[in-house]
Simulated scan of single mutants.
Amino acid sequence: MRNLKVFFLIFSLLAFASIYAHKDRGEYPKSVKFIFDDKETLVLNYDDSRLGNICDEIISGKRKLTEAYVTYKTGEVVNVKFDGENCTSIDIMCKNKRVFVEKNILKKIKGIHFSTLTLSWSSDYDKAFSSSYFTISFDMGTERFYDEFPNVQLFFKKQVFSNAEVWKQISKNGRQGSKL
Rank of each mutant, 00 (worst) to 15 (best):
S49Y: 09
C87S: 04
R144E: 15
R98M: 15
I170F: 06
Y20R: 02
R25A: 14
F161E: 06
L51N: 07
A21C: 07
S171E: 07
G26C: 05
Y69A: 11
F82H: 09
I54Q: 03
F161K: 02
V80C: 12
I54P: 00
Q159W: 09
S122P: 01
K97H: 09
I136N: 00
T66C: 05
I112L: 01
S31E: 14
E148M: 02
D91Q: 07
K108Q: 14
V152C: 10
I170Q: 05
F134A: 00
Q153E: 10
W167Q: 08
Y133S: 06
I90P: 00
I35L: 07
V99A: 13
K168E: 14
M93A: 10
I170H: 07
E165Q: 11
K23W: 09
D37T: 12
S18Q: 08
K127M: 13
S162N: 13
P29M: 07
G84K: 09
F156T: 08
S162W: 12
F8I: 11
D147N: 15
K64W: 06
D56I: 08
L44C: 13
D91L: 11
E57T: 08
V77M: 11
F156L: 07
V70W: 04
D47W: 12
K97V: 10
L42G: 05
V78D: 02
G84C: 07
K179T: 12
K108S: 14
Y46N: 15
L4K: 14
Y125I: 00
N86R: 09
N151A: 07
G52P: 04
K97R: 15
S89Q: 10
N86Q: 09
V99Y: 04
F7S: 06
S18A: 08
G52Q: 13
A17H: 10
F100V: 02
V160K: 15
